[in-house]
Amino acid sequence: MPHYFVTVLPGLEEILADEMRVKISGVCIRDKARGKVYFDSDLPVEHFLALRTADNLYRFIHRFPVGPHKLHLHDIEKEISRLDLSMILPASSGTGMLSFKVNASRSGNHTYSRFEAAEAAEWGIMRRNRHFRQDHSGGHQLEFRLDLVQEEAVFAVRMTDAAFRYRGKTREFTPAALRPTVAHALVWVARPEIDDIFVDPCCGSGTVLSERCAYPHALIHGGDLSAEAVAAARANVGHISSVHVKPWDAQRLPLDSGYAGKVVTNLPFGKQISSIACLPALYEGVLSEMKRVLKPGGRMVCLTDAEAPLQAAAEKAHLRLTNVADLRLKGLHPSIYLLEKD
């Protein structure tokens, strides 16, 4: 049975593992490490492309010990030169030359750089496989990954292309736009259901709305104070009759009380806020309005790094607050929170 791993934004490993268990029948999750979920499956690769929290999919090739000094670069080259890579060759490769590159990461007290480790791996590949040639121009056919963590190396080949985590779409972006994988994690924590009436009160360029559109729903509403953001969200979501995007104030939503079952949003935080002093009042107003719009038993999921203002606003609104995951995102450390209405 082939071994794989998927990469994910650090902090989202358990959310991705849960998505895998639900979506892929018979998958065997072997391990979770920072930014990775390892699993076994004999299903075709196409089944794994449904994982919307994942950044990329890799086929695991080899794990081996590594030394910390430059003289050990030769050992990396030698170890990789022993590998039979025929199992991962594209069906269309024939007997012609295959272009490739190796990306490497390094964590530990090594005296060599990740670039030197990648080069050693590349020489190892070419020693064993004469029809492989290095290509760093961006037009390579295969991309290998070498991760060095202290005294251990993991070698793998990427199965997804560069557009995978961005859904292969040309998107309109506004400042502080979420990565689709993070937006999906928020949607997944809310537990999408076929009869959902779903609201994103601070929708920005509509990434959360786009991710919710990937699942059956009843109605989806989104809005933002910024006319530029609303225009971008409409362009990104497209023409779907069940999705409504309009300009509005998240503290005064044009929606009936008890209307929505799910509210999911990326709350303003970090560089989106000109002064930290306004956050408590903003969060208090937004959470109060979200509680009004939510049905009894409804769920709200949000992303922010402003824990104290959020906690104070949740207490005032009488919403149960749970920290679901702590992330590292663009130099910030936001968390995903679940808030529930009795």
Rank of each mutant, 00 (worst) to 15 (best):
W123I: 10
V6A: 12
S288W: 02
I15A: 01
F144A: 04
A17M: 09
N109R: 08
H47Q: 14
V189P: 15
H47C: 13
F60K: 08
L287C: 06
F155L: 02
Y283P: 10
M87W: 06
M126P: 08
S226E: 09
V187K: 05
K295H: 00
H244Y: 10
D196I: 04
S86L: 07
F155M: 02
P216N: 01
R320T: 15
R165H: 15
L253E: 09
G206P: 08
N129T: 06
K78F: 07
E119H: 12
R299V: 14
M159C: 15
L287F: 01
A214C: 13
P247Q: 11
Q141M: 11
L12R: 03
L339T: 07
V154N: 06
A163P: 11
M300Y: 01
I29N: 10
P309S: 02
P10F: 00
H74T: 13
F60Q: 11
A229S: 14
K316L: 14
R212A: 13
E122Q: 13
A227P: 11
V208M: 02
V301H: 07
G204D: 00
A313E: 04
T265Q: 05
G11Q: 01
H239L: 06
I240G: 04
V8K: 00
P2C: 02
I29H: 10
G94L: 10
K70D: 10
R328M: 05
A183R: 03
A231G: 09
A177D: 12
R82K: 13
L319R: 08
N103Q: 10
G222M: 00
W188L: 06
Q134R: 15
M159D: 11
G258N: 09
I273H: 04
L282K: 00
Q272C: 04
N236Y: 04
V149F: 12
A120M: 04
T53L: 01
D305T: 01
D249A: 07
C203G: 07
R21F: 04
E13Y: 00
L83F: 10
A177W: 02
A314F: 00
L327Y: 00
S107P: 05
T95D: 15
V154S: 10
R30L: 14
C203K: 05
M87R: 13
L339W: 08
I61E: 06
V243L: 08
V45E: 15
S81Q: 06
R82C: 13
G270T: 07
P296R: 06
K295L: 12
H244M: 06
Q251H: 05
R212T: 01
K169H: 13
L267W: 01
Y4W: 10
L57W: 04
G67F: 04
A33C: 08
L57A: 02
R171E: 15
W248V: 07
A104V: 01
Q272L: 14
G94D: 13
D40A: 05
A54G: 07
L186H: 00
L146W: 00
H217C: 08
L255E: 14
A325T: 03
T95G: 11
A231P: 06
